[in-house]
Amino acid sequence: MPELPEIETIKGIIEPQVQGLTIKNVIVNRPEVIAYPAANAFCDLLTGQTISHMERRGKFLLFALDSGDRIVLHLRMTGCLLLTPAGHPEEKHTHIIFELNNDMELRFSDMRRFGRFWLIQAGENDTYSGIDKLGPDPIGDGLTPEFLEARVGKRKKPIKVCLMDQKIIAGIGNIYSDEILFSAGIHPGRPADSLSADEWERLAETIPEVLAWFIEKDSVTPEEYLRGRGRDYRNTPFLQVYGREGGPCRICKTSLCRTVIGGRSSTFCPVCQMDFLRSAD
Rank of each mutant, 00 (worst) to 15 (best):
R264A: 06
A197V: 08
A280V: 13
F268Q: 06
P85A: 12
G247M: 12
P89R: 12
S52M: 10
T78E: 08
K154P: 00
L65W: 06
D66W: 11
I207T: 07
F98A: 01
G263A: 02
P85H: 12
T47W: 04
E216H: 14
K92C: 01
I215Y: 03
Q240N: 11
V18G: 01
D110E: 03
G135C: 04
L203F: 04
E105S: 11
G262V: 08
Q19Y: 04
G185A: 09
L211A: 02
P222T: 13
P237W: 12
N25R: 15
D275T: 04
I186N: 08
E199L: 13
P158K: 04
T50P: 00
P248E: 14
D69M: 05
Y233D: 02
N125V: 01
G142F: 06
R30G: 03
I186R: 01
H74M: 12
I251F: 01
G189Q: 13
Q19V: 11
I120C: 02
Y233H: 14
E8P: 00
K217G: 03
A41M: 05
P5W: 04
V33N: 00
H74T: 02
A35T: 10
R76N: 13
A280Y: 13
H93N: 09
L226E: 15
Y233R: 12
L211H: 06
K253E: 12
R57T: 07
N235A: 13
M77W: 05
E201S: 14
K24R: 15
E223C: 02
D281R: 13
G123Q: 08
A86G: 08
D178E: 07
H88F: 02
P85M: 08
V28L: 04
L61T: 07
K217P: 03
E245H: 10
L143C: 03
D126L: 00
E245A: 06
K156E: 05
N40K: 13
G142S: 09
F42G: 03
K253I: 08
Q240G: 06
S194E: 15
P191D: 09
D44C: 07
G140K: 10
P145M: 09
R56H: 12
G243F: 14
K92G: 13
L73S: 04
G87H: 14
L82S: 07
